[in-house]
Amino acid sequence: MENNAKIKNIIQALGQHKDSDAAIELLTELGTNCPDDEIRELTAQALIRKNTHESLRVVLIHQGKGINDLSARVAMTAINELLSLKDKGEAIKILDDTIKLHSEEDVKNTARSVRALMTFS
């Protein structure tokens, strides 16, 4: 088994882990900072599926992570995952706060676009 496949399985196990806070912390620490696009993509998916305030904050408001990732592939995957959520309430709330309060204009613009997409989805 290749290293990437092992890490993918670890990310999947963390996505289902009972210790949600610790799992989110580890995904944020190792997954979102991984140089491999595929690992960051899977990490963003796992965090969004957690659908908690902390996990969504990581992928919505942090520069270079989640929907703000420099890789279009990673960003689009994160957006698709957000649109697939059954309960979008927490994500919309965070996006609204980001549009209002974030200091980075790029982050605000991205949040605004995603917010619009979520409204129409």
Partner: peptide, 8 residues
């Protein structure tokens, strides 16, 4: 999670 971190 600690074990998973170590494995990763």
């Amino acid at each position: 999670v600690d074990e998973l971190k170590a494995m990763w």
